[in-house]
Simulated assay, not measured.
Amino acid sequence: MMSKAQKLRAKRKAQLGRPRKANAERFACGKIKPDWSKRESEKEAMAVALAARKRMHGLETSSSFAGYTLGRLFLDGRITEAQREAGDDYAKGMARYYHLTGIPFPSVRAQAIDRVQGHAPETSEERHRQIKRATERMMRLEGVLLGCDEGRQVKTTVFNVCVMDYEGLRMMPEAQLLWLKRGLNALVFDKGLHDYGERECSFNNL
């Protein structure tokens, strides 16, 4: 007969970890057999999504780039990989600025769908530093775009493609595409200068 202490230890041991899966098919070693029906349903869901993507956007690919306007422009061959990366970095910088400052994200169609509404700013010193850095980066990026020829059109086009993610801009005319490329090229150049400057500072501090 078990003592009270032994019963208590046995009860605690039984409560440890995840409960054993009931009615699950297992291999001889005890490992649960994979649920092939679930995998098949996932494949079917993926097939439906790809068919919808092909029907709506004319793209037969599982690439994540097909999920947003800038990526589709890249898949169409209208912008280069470096330009796409610069546009993605710009979108991330703007998303971080909105998120940290608490300013509502301007579009529910934008890439950072979980950041449509930013959080209220906190009063911690580290939070203030993060907000300051994000704001400075946003202002620098906007200054780069506005510094291009026809800067206002360039800035608006880049913002509408990379942040607002307007699908209609995938078929933009060549003149507007030139504004987009001009802005993205300026962002590529600025990123190169910025990264080079940071590397120089780190080398000098060695």
Results as ranks from 00 to 15, higher is better:
residue 45 A to Y: 03
residue 157 T to F: 01
residue 193 L to K: 14
residue 38 K to P: 00
residue 204 N to K: 11
residue 168 G to M: 15
residue 183 G to Y: 08
residue 104 P to D: 13
residue 49 A to Q: 14
residue 75 L to I: 13
residue 117 Q to Y: 10
residue 53 R to F: 05
residue 162 C to W: 07
residue 178 L to S: 14
residue 97 Y to N: 04
residue 199 R to A: 11
residue 12 R to F: 05
residue 167 E to Y: 13
residue 100 L to M: 10
residue 185 N to G: 13
residue 154 V to C: 07
residue 59 L to M: 12
residue 122 E to F: 15
residue 41 S to Y: 00
residue 81 E to T: 08
residue 22 A to G: 08
residue 13 K to D: 04
residue 21 K to W: 03
residue 163 V to K: 00
residue 97 Y to C: 05
residue 127 R to V: 05
residue 202 S to Y: 09
residue 7 K to T: 01
residue 199 R to I: 01
residue 14 A to S: 15
residue 59 L to C: 08
residue 111 Q to I: 04
residue 145 L to C: 03
residue 95 A to D: 10
residue 37 S to G: 09
residue 13 K to L: 11
residue 198 E to V: 13
residue 184 L to Q: 08
residue 105 F to D: 00
residue 179 W to V: 02
residue 182 R to H: 02
residue 128 H to D: 05
residue 187 L to W: 11
residue 80 T to G: 09
residue 184 L to Y: 03
residue 15 Q to W: 03
residue 34 P to K: 08
residue 193 L to D: 08
residue 192 G to M: 14
residue 60 E to D: 13
residue 75 L to F: 06
residue 83 Q to H: 00
residue 45 A to M: 10
residue 189 F to A: 12
residue 16 L to G: 01
residue 85 E to R: 15
residue 172 M to C: 04
residue 187 L to V: 08
residue 126 E to K: 13
residue 117 Q to W: 05
residue 185 N to C: 05
residue 166 Y to Q: 12
residue 17 G to P: 10
residue 203 F to E: 13
residue 93 G to R: 04
residue 160 N to G: 07
residue 120 A to T: 13
residue 106 P to E: 03
residue 38 K to T: 06
residue 162 C to M: 08
residue 22 A to W: 04
residue 188 V to G: 02
residue 68 Y to S: 05
residue 109 R to F: 14
residue 174 E to C: 03
residue 142 E to R: 06
residue 158 V to Y: 12
residue 158 V to T: 13
residue 39 R to F: 07
residue 1 M to A: 00
residue 157 T to A: 09
residue 79 I to M: 05
residue 32 I to M: 03
residue 150 E to S: 15
residue 126 E to T: 10
residue 29 C to K: 10
residue 34 P to L: 04
residue 192 G to S: 09
residue 14 A to E: 09
residue 55 R to V: 02
residue 96 R to L: 12
residue 135 T to E: 09
residue 142 E to P: 02
residue 71 G to T: 05
residue 48 V to I: 10
residue 110 A to D: 04
residue 2 M to S: 15
residue 192 G to Q: 14
residue 144 V to S: 07
residue 103 I to E: 06
residue 165 D to L: 07
residue 32 I to N: 00
residue 2 M to H: 15
residue 172 M to H: 01
residue 74 F to V: 06
residue 104 P to K: 08
residue 56 M to L: 11
residue 78 R to D: 15
residue 31 K to Y: 05
residue 36 W to C: 02
residue 75 L to A: 05
residue 141 L to Y: 05
residue 184 L to R: 02
residue 193 L to C: 10
residue 48 V to D: 13
residue 63 S to W: 01
residue 187 L to M: 12
residue 104 P to Y: 02
residue 187 L to E: 07
residue 126 E to M: 08
residue 23 N to T: 14
residue 156 T to R: 14
residue 74 F to T: 02
residue 22 A to C: 06
residue 111 Q to V: 02
residue 63 S to F: 02
residue 92 K to Q: 14
residue 159 F to C: 00
residue 23 N to I: 06
residue 22 A to P: 07
residue 127 R to P: 00
residue 157 T to M: 10
residue 109 R to M: 15
residue 175 A to M: 11
residue 124 S to M: 03
residue 6 Q to W: 14
residue 2 M to L: 15
residue 95 A to E: 06
residue 51 A to I: 03
residue 146 L to D: 11
residue 151 G to F: 09
residue 35 D to Y: 09
residue 159 F to D: 03
residue 19 P to C: 12
residue 23 N to V: 11
residue 85 E to W: 12
residue 14 A to R: 14
residue 90 Y to M: 09
